[in-house]
Design a protein around this nucleic acid. Structure first.
Lengths: 142, 142
DNA sequence: TGAACACCCTGTAGCAACTACGGGGTCAAG
DNA sequence: CTTGACCCCGTAGTTGCTACAGGGTGTTCA
């Protein structure tokens, strides 16, 4: 199949496929006499493997490792497990950080309930306070 | 004060300060005869304003808008409010996406409880299934 | 026959927000 | 007078794509 068909099956962009090839994640395919890339089932599988990893938020470097692990079937899978653990920890950390952020933003948003002018807007005021090193509603403790 | 002192006070890197100057967020400072940048309280305030916005996850383009709003004090602050609303929505969306991701990762992690080889590892198996278009533990519905 | 159109090629640049050089100059202390 | 901390500029790298520009290929419809 040609690159457009492959991309469609994997649900990604043609440019993305070429990018993975450049990065060495996807093997270089045969070419038609015209120079068009010509893919088979194995390419499709690898591409979908990569996209699956991406959909789980993994980095290409990590996916590269996972692809390598497949080539060492008798090896202990501790590397795979560790990779997952790192990814879970990363996501948990981000969820926690985002939760804090949300609280801060909501506290800040509450500073300007009614329409005001920029001069009197509680949000801008809070920003200016923070800029002067003072406490602000979004970063107050407790 | 010189750039190192300014950066230290704002809790950021010297390179970051120069970057903001290049981007037009921070006004170009005076120079000492040596060519060293020479900052005052206003620069420090603006820099801290920017860093405060960044700490709330805002983009530089949005912070640029906030800085502009300060120059139109009599204007209706709807623009400021809208900016915050957008940011809150963005964070909520990310929290939700991350929550889904975490569940998927934990389901996947559970596929390999004991140490195994890469060949038998449930995580790699699930990846391979997904790569073949089949259902996988991390993306099953329900 | 030919013109339109979808598809493919390469190579390069852009995005966001920094970060990290390389190759220099300045300045105070020991 | 040399060591070391600081500063300068300009450019390239990071991540994972995305978007051209400027061309070739291949099928279909009039």
């Amino acid at each position: 199949m040609r690159i457009g068909e492959l991309a469609k099956r994997a649900g990604c962009d043609v440019e993305t496929v070429r990018y993975y090839e450049r990065e060495g994640l996807l093997a270089k395919p045969e070419r038609e006499p015209s120079g068009y890339r010509c893919y088979g089932a194995l390419h499709q599988e690898t591409l979908q493997f990569i996209r699956h990893g991406r959909s789980l938020g993994m980095k290409l470097a990590e996916i590269r490792l996972l692809l390598d692990f497949r080539h060492h079937p008798e090896e202990d899978c501790a590397g795979v497990d560790a990779l997952l653990d790192v990814q879970i920890a990363r996501v948990e950390e981000q969820i926690s950080a985002m939760g804090t952020l949300k609280e801060q933003l909501i506290a800040l948003r509450g500073e300007c309930e009614q329409r005001q002018t920029n001069r009197t807007c509680g949000i801008l005021r809070a920003f200016n306070q923070a800029a002067q090193g003072q406490a602000c509603p979004c970063h107050r403790e407790g």
